[in-house]
Simulated scan of single mutants.
Amino acid sequence: MKALIAGAGRLGTQIAQVLAAARNDVTLVDVDEDRIAELEGHLPVRLVPGDACEPAFLEHAGAHTADLIIAVTGNDEDNLVISLLAKRKFAVPRVAARVNDPENAWLFDRNWGVDTAVPAATPLISLIEEATGATDTVSLLRLSKAGVDVIETAITPQSRAAGRTLAEITLPAGTVIATVVREGQPTVPTPEMRLRPGDELLLVSHSATEQEIHAAFQ
């Protein structure tokens, strides 16, 4: 799947990392050139600076061949414009958009090209199903075609994994750690990385349950 994500804030970078870990072709764009430069080398995706509200830039970024466009900027007007362009000009099959202000939620529908509207309170956009639990380990995303689950778990001072390296943690079969979000920044996981309270991990698995992931870290 080819995905284009507009908005390289925390949510956008998490989505990019998750989709890339599931072997999708991901492009992440943002109008802030400094933010794109900051992410260079930290995400296994194509990073492009520019204004996704501009049709010419969207085409340059790959909208004309995208299977999915996700608009997650901090501005509802921008997210609506991006969604409308994606659907009407580039005929993108699936378009998801973040709703920052709940009062604007009524606008985020098919008339504006939005297939899936995601409230700002959602911790991580779900492309197929939204998060349904409020525990520290939540199944966030199911890539139905690939049969892949993306599961998030947060490290607390009470977690058994706190202070341990990733190499010391036994993961369920068919499970890999996609990223460790530390102090709001996605970090490429290495076996030597020692987990700290406050770390958030995104794991990709073909078979593990939320309970099995919880048992490994909590």
Rank of each mutant, 00 (worst) to 15 (best):
F90R: 12
I36N: 02
R94K: 15
H60S: 11
L85H: 08
H64F: 03
E59F: 06
V18I: 13
Q17E: 06
E38C: 09
A21Q: 05
A20P: 03
V48P: 02
R88D: 13
R88G: 09
K89G: 15
S83M: 02
E59V: 03
L58T: 07
V72T: 09
Q17I: 09
V92L: 06
L68S: 01
L84I: 05
L68Y: 04
L19Y: 01
G62M: 14
V26A: 08
S83K: 04
D25M: 06
A22I: 05
D25K: 10
N24V: 00
I69D: 05
P55A: 15
G74S: 15
L84E: 04
D78C: 05
R88C: 07
E54D: 14
A91H: 11
D51C: 07
V95C: 03
G74A: 12
A91Y: 06
D67M: 14
A91W: 07
N24K: 00
D34C: 10
D30A: 11
A86Y: 06
H42C: 11
F57L: 09
A56S: 15
E54W: 06
A16F: 00
N75T: 11
A71N: 03
Q17T: 10
P55C: 15
A52G: 08
V29L: 15
A21F: 08
D51L: 06
F90S: 14
P55D: 14
L39D: 01
T27M: 07
S83H: 02
D76Q: 06
D30H: 13
K89W: 11
D78P: 04
D67V: 08
